[in-house]
Design a protein around this nucleic acid. Structure first.
Length: 467
RNA sequence: GGCGCCGUGGCGGAGUGGUUACGCAGCGGUCUGCAAAACCGCGUACGCCGGUUCAAUUCCGGCCGGCGCCUCCA
């Protein structure tokens, strides 16, 4: 039985979808004005795992992840670049897809854009005004009145009074309450805008998610996810909007992933300590995108994770061990779920405990290594199990040799490529056959200097990988 | 100021009221022409101080240290 930590209640709860066997989930996506960094990757991978595991567990999953393609930062950046908002956002949407595809993050079933749901946004805003949850402020913006929603603060555990006492609440003359937030914003000259009952304008940030979930998932759905930083105010405001507008309960389970830190500090655009996904993947220090993915799975999704090259190297070593176990084994066509699968499921059922799930894979790799010499059929069966479980985490999807022969250390490429390596290995084989070990060791040293590690097998053949 | 999280062995990182996490690194061994990989074995743990308990890293309280949200943010 799957248990997941529900941020709304602060407890681990048994997971019961609204409709048996069917899960509908929504995850907050990105604002597309720049390239995605490792922090974005973590959130997307965390919920990609949730989705994959739910499907693995037999649920039919509808997965929605939005794109925020209109907001202040986008307008500002487009103006700086002297390009249209549409050109800018499309460029970064394409880049986002490229990055996420490389990381094995499955495309959502629906990937709505805010600008594609303007009529629903306007309709919901009108409903909120009609129900007295919203008002037109003195500056023409439509504001949500937080004091009208009795449950405001339930997700983030905050009291309105405490929030008002906070020193950092912006003072805005147009608001009746400093905590009120914008639903519909009056357009300034030259800004992208849409006609509305309140004049030309554009949506505020929070209303888009409420409108898109309503359009695609209805008034109630099972899981709503996003980064911890979205818990307040974004998700709090979504609840206030959706519950007030529809009278329904919105999402049953709220899930929030922890941050990626650098030197123990949150990775963020505003701090400037961020690493872009594409820069990391292209740095030459990451053998394969799966390494970055595996690194992000090495700690629990709710806790913080510290990004560093040392961590990446350790992830590379650990994942390479799994691939090494799969090498030279043809996985069996079928396999019965064994101890590893039971442990894997138990771990994942416990609020998606990926570190423990990975430990199950490592233990399985050890079993394969022990079985491979004396019980090849057993090894083939276990290898199939390992690959299958790996697919739930989105790793172990390459061929072992292809993975292990990629380089994890930039600048140590052997000249001439793989063909040259094979030639040198053949020359070394000849020297070994003639028991000219001085020459064979010389060739091995030469290859080692180029980052190529040789492994002689019992049958006399030699395989290779990159360090 | 309000709300919340964290502190596990050299590095990461799960977990548990009494029994092996797991990986990386290290040490010893097996295998190997020598290596590599693999396998076998080994080592240094649970921030500090109290309390509860037959027993606490694991529950409770306090302290110290680190971090997050309260403003855009995955």
């Amino acid at each position: 039985m799957l248990q997941l930590f529900n941020t709304l209640t602060g407890r681990k709860e048994e997971f019961h979808p609204l409709e048996p066997g069917i899960v509908r989930m929504y995850v907050c996506g990105d604002t597309v004005y720049d390239y995605c960094h490792i922090g974005h990757a973590r959130s997307k991978i965390a919920f990609d795992i949730v989705r994959r595991y739910l499907a693995f567990s037999g649920y039919r999953v509808t997965f929605v992840r939005n794109i925020t393609d209109i907001d202040d930062k986008i307008i500002k950046r487009a103006a700086e670049n002297r390009e249209s908002v549409q050109t800018l956002t499309q460029r970064f949407i394409d880049a986002m897809h490229e990055d996420y595809d490389r990381l094995g993050i499955l495309r959502p079933d629906f990937e709505p854009k805010a600008t594609g749901h303007i009529p629903s946004i306007i309709a919901m805003t009108r409903t909120l005004i009609d129900k007295n949850y919203a008002y037109v402020a003195t500056n023409g913006d439509v504001m949500y009145s937080v004091s009208a929603f009795a449950e405001y603060g339930q997700l983030s555990g905050r009291q309105l009074g405490d929030l008002r006492a906070g020193a950092r609440v912006a003072i805005d003359e147009a608001k009746r309450d400093p905590l009120d937030f914008v639903l519909w914003k009056q357009a300034k000259p030259g800004e992208p805008s849409w006609p509305s009952p309140w004049g030309e304008g554009r949506p505020g940030w929070h209303i888009e998610c409420s409108a898109m979930t309503l359009d695609l998932l209805g008034t109630r759905f099972d899981i709503h996810g996003g980064g911890l930083d979205l818990k307040f105010p974004h998700h709090e405001n979504e609840i206030a909007q959706s519950c007030a507008a529809t009278g329904d309960r919105f999402a049953t389970y709220w899930m929030h992933n922890g941050f990626v830190n650098v030197d123990n500090e949150k990775m963020a655009k505003s701090v400037g300590n961020f690493f872009l996904i594409r820069d990391v993947l292209n740095s030459g220090r990451v053998r394969d995108p799966e390494v970055l993915r595996f690194f992000l799975l090495s700690s629990h999704y709710r806790g913080p994770i510290n990004y560093s090259l040392t961590q990446i190297e350790q992830a590379d070593a650990a994942l390479s061990r799994l691939y090494t176990a799969l090498r030279d084994i043809e996985p069996a066509a079928n396999h019965e779920p064994g101890d590893a699968t039971r442990r894997f499921k138990a771990a994942m059922d416990d609020d998606f405990n990926t570190p423990d799930a990975v430990a199950a894979l490592q233990t399985l790799a050890g079993e394969i290594n022990r079985a491979r010499a004396n019980a090849p059929q057993v090894a083939a069966t276990l290898a199939a199990e390992l690959r299958h479980l790996g697919s739930v985490l989105g790793v172990l999807q390459s061929s072992p040799d292809a993975f292990l022969r990629k380089s994890a250390s930039a600048g140590s490429e052997a000249p001439g490529g793989d063909a040259a390596i094979e030639q040198l290995i053949a020359a070394r084989q000849a020297a070994r056959k003639a028991r000219n070990f001085k020459e064979s060791d010389r060739i091995r040293d030469e290859l080692a200097a180029a980052g190529v590690v040789l492994e002689d097998k019992p049958d006399g053949s030699t395989t290779w990988r990159r360090a």
